[in-house]
Computed example of a mutant assay.
Amino acid sequence: MTKRDPMIHVRISEELKGILEREARESGRSLNAEVVHRIESSLNPLLAEPGKAEIDINKALILAKAILAEDERRRLGYDENEAQMIALWRDLSPRNKELLLSLFTSSLLSPDS
């Protein structure tokens, strides 16, 4: 920001001003920079904190994956247990899939089953 950026004047309570001053000190910002940061953050959550944006994106991906899985489960007529098994299977490495298949196969072919 420069001295030429537009200015606005705002009335706030003493309590709110105290909170903003404390937060500014803790974050190493001036009071003005803290207020601008908080306004920008509220208008664009991705600017709030670099790490927070990554967390929000990860949450969105997890939610999208869950929605797609539920949609697929309904479309294909799987019950909840089948859907969980399919989701777990998809997350396995190729090697672990191979090991699990051999375990199932040997278990199914065993005369004790």
Results as ranks from 00 to 15, higher is better:
R4N: 14
R95I: 12
S113G: 10
F104E: 08
L61V: 11
G28Q: 04
I19D: 01
I67G: 01
E23C: 05
A33E: 10
L47V: 14
P50H: 06
S113L: 07
L99A: 13
L43D: 02
K97Q: 14
L92M: 14
S27I: 05
E23Y: 01
E72V: 15
L103E: 10
L108H: 10
E54H: 03
E21P: 01
M1S: 15
H9S: 14
K97Y: 09
R38V: 01
D71L: 11
S27C: 09
H9V: 13
K65M: 04
K59W: 03
D56S: 01
G77T: 15
L109W: 04
L46F: 12
A60S: 00
K52H: 05
L68I: 12
S102G: 07
E54Q: 04
G28S: 05
S102C: 08
L108V: 11
I55G: 02
L109E: 10
E21A: 06
N32F: 07
K17I: 06
N58M: 04
G51N: 04
E70K: 12
E49K: 04
R73Y: 09
V35N: 01
L16C: 06
D71M: 12
L108K: 11
D112F: 02
R74L: 15
H9T: 15
K65F: 03
S102M: 11
Q84T: 14
I62T: 13
E82W: 12
F104Q: 09
L100V: 15
S93I: 11
G28H: 06
E26M: 08
R73M: 12
L88C: 08
Y78D: 06
E21M: 04
R11N: 08
N44R: 13
M7Q: 14
P111V: 05
K65R: 11
A33K: 07
E72R: 10
I55H: 03
E15N: 06
N32H: 12
M85T: 15
R11V: 11
H9D: 07
S110I: 05
S41K: 00
N32S: 15
R95T: 14
R73D: 09
